[in-house]
């Protein structure tokens, strides 16, 4: 249940401002693709165009094609709601629903899609929490509020919530930037496990993280402040970090800027 994403000639705008320009790439299924680059280079914006979350911001729009196993996500007949149902997302800051319990948080997405029996729901919640390596820590307090968990646990709860609806793709927008190193490690282990089932795309500021977890890496950069961001280079992660073909990539990776 994991699919390939093909992007061609994609531009994204905020009102009159062009945030990214002419991005084309292929994201392979059952692998982790990392986006790296300096702040403001449009990597998060690009990530949000992949499940049509970009257009949630007033005035934001997209031009170009995003194909999910050949099907255009931006075709006129496609609804953003169904796209997001198939392409899950985990955000920078853990955002469990504050008024819901742990159980309800995981069940939230599933409940949208019609009636599910109690036993079936219990099964999905357990399976998702296990999938997110959280089950053992919360199984005795499923009815407690999700906001009572630690930051790292909350983020894994959000991952459980995202995988509970069995998406084809999982997008992660700097999922560890608000977490301590131990929680970060837990999330990274989890990603390695989830990659067997999902296409995973992760935006990260942390180059070591990209090198540790990802199979392929794309480097985003912008010519100068105010200009749109572009993909400078995309390659196997191992090659990218040892032998990049672009000077800018090498400068960024070795910490000469950014």
């Amino acid at each position: 249940m994991s699919k390939q994403i093909q992007v061609s000639g994609l531009d994204a705008y905020y009102g009159g401002h062009k945030a990214i320009e002419d991005v084309s790439m292929t994201i392979e299924p059952r692998s982790i693709t990392a986006f790296i680059g300096p702040s403001g280079c449009g990597k998060s914006t690009f990530l949000r165009t992949l499940n049509r979350m970009h257009e949630v911001i007033p005035g934001a729009r997209v031009e170009g094609k995003v194909l999910l196993d050949g099907e255009d996500l931006y075709a006129p007949t496609v609804e953003p709601v169904s796209v997001r149902r198939m392409i899950g997302m985990v955000f920078q800051r853990p955002n469990p629903f504050p008024t819901m319990s742990i159980y309800e948080n995981v069940a939230a997405g599933l409940r949208l899609n019609g009636r599910v029996s109690k036993s079936e729901m219990d099964g999905v919640v357990e399976e998702s929490l296990k999938g997110a390596n959280l089950w053992n820590e919360v199984k005795d307090r499923l009815s407690k509020p999700g906001a009572g968990l630690s930051g790292g646990q909350q983020q894994r709860l959000c991952i459980a919530r995202a995988i509970a609806v069995k998406p084809q793709v999982l997008l992660m927008d700097e999922p560890c930037s608000a977490l301590d190193p131990i929680s970060t490690l837990a999330i990274e282990d989890l990603m390695a496990k989830l990659k067997d089932d999902y296409t995973i795309v992760i935006v990260t500021h942390n180059m070591q993280q990209a090198a540790r977890v990802s199979d392929r890496t794309a480097f985003f950069n912008l010519a100068e402040q105010g200009k749109p961001g572009k993909v400078i280079e995309m390659d196997e992660t191992s090659r990218m970090f040892t032998n990049p073909s672009e000077k800018a990539t090498e400068d960024y990776i070795t910490g000469r800027f950014g």
Binding site: V81, M89, F91, F97, N113
Partner: peptide
Amino acid sequence: APKMNEEAALALGATRWEMIRMAVLPF
């Protein structure tokens, strides 16, 4: 109502009304 919860609901594939019911009204 926290924007991040509204986005979480939308990213789960909620319609606008479902998002409001999940993230805005309870809050």
